[in-house]
Amino acid sequence: MRLPNAVHTSRSWRVHELTRDFTLEDVWALPTPGGRNDFTRLVQDFPRLMQGLASGDSSSVTSRATRLLFAVRRALGRVFRWDGSGSGVGSRVPTLRDRLPADLRDAPTGPDLGSFTSVYLLDDEWAVELANRTVHGVMHIGWVPDDAGGYRGEMAVYAKPNGLLGTGYMHAIAPFRRVIVYPAMMRQIERRWQAGVSGAVRPAPEDT
């Protein structure tokens, strides 16, 4: 479920200190119910939950529409060289780790996630970043109380477009991202989280 941006900005997440020149694009409630101490499990399990979505390899993505959009994005990236050498974190843009205050710099880095590089990991939040020739993006995963007396994940996505190209790109993909990609992502995460919790391994039906 998509949430108002204020749900995220009202919390005292450390990511706010690092992203003042970024735009908060989206906030989503993750369908990952758990207990107070389950954030570590979410972080460890996130590569499986996001398989194919964070890496750009859509072969394991269950949504056919999302696979098509990923294929189009890969094709455009090859034609316009959006993802080539010199376009990523540490090349076109400095890593956000350079902005970390001392206490975060000394905290665990956390795992990378596909094409995303981890910035920091705390007991209830994790930030990863990605860059190409269109945008410098940050995905923040937090662990928050839910309405049922438990906890769940919450995902926030920040972006810093690269000039007119990046601004135009972000505007162009916004409806596809919010109507197709993120809803399909939530369904995939929910199925895989439930399967992991139950210990069952079931083939997931394809989304349209």
Rank of each mutant, 00 (worst) to 15 (best):
T32G: 07
T32N: 06
P33S: 10
G35H: 09
G35W: 06
R36Y: 08
N37L: 12
N37D: 15
D38E: 15
D38V: 07
F39R: 00
T40M: 06
L42H: 01
V43R: 04
Q44H: 14
Q44F: 10
D45I: 01
F46I: 02
F46E: 06
F46P: 01
Q51N: 13
Q51S: 06
L53I: 06
S55P: 01
S55C: 06
G56S: 00
G56N: 02
S60P: 06
T62E: 15
T62H: 15
S63N: 00
S63A: 04
S63M: 01
R64C: 05
A65P: 03
R67M: 04
L68P: 00
L68W: 08
L68I: 11
F70W: 06
F70P: 03
F70V: 14
F70S: 13
A71S: 14
R73G: 05
R73H: 09
R73T: 08
R74S: 04
A75V: 08
L76Q: 14
L76D: 03
L76S: 13
G77W: 06
V79E: 01
V79W: 05
V79D: 02
F80G: 08
F80R: 12
R81D: 15
W82V: 08
D83C: 09
D83G: 10
G86H: 07
S87A: 13
G88I: 12
G88P: 10
V89L: 01
V89C: 02
V89W: 05
S91R: 15
S91H: 14
S91C: 10
R92K: 13
R92C: 12
V93K: 09
P94V: 13
P94E: 14
T95Q: 15
T95W: 12
L96W: 06
R97I: 08
L100K: 04
L100V: 04
A102M: 10
A102V: 15
A102R: 09
D103T: 11
L104W: 00
L104Y: 01
L104G: 02
L104R: 00
R105G: 12
R105M: 15
D106Y: 08
A107M: 09
A107I: 09
A107D: 00
P108V: 09
T109P: 01
G110M: 05
G110E: 05
L113E: 11
L113G: 00
L113N: 04
S115V: 10
F116H: 00
F116M: 11
V119Y: 06
V119A: 02
L122C: 08
D123P: 07
D124H: 10
W126G: 03
W126E: 00
A127Y: 00
V128Q: 03
V128I: 11
E129C: 05
E129P: 02
L130S: 03
A131Q: 03
N132R: 04
R133E: 14
R133D: 15
R133K: 15
T134E: 13
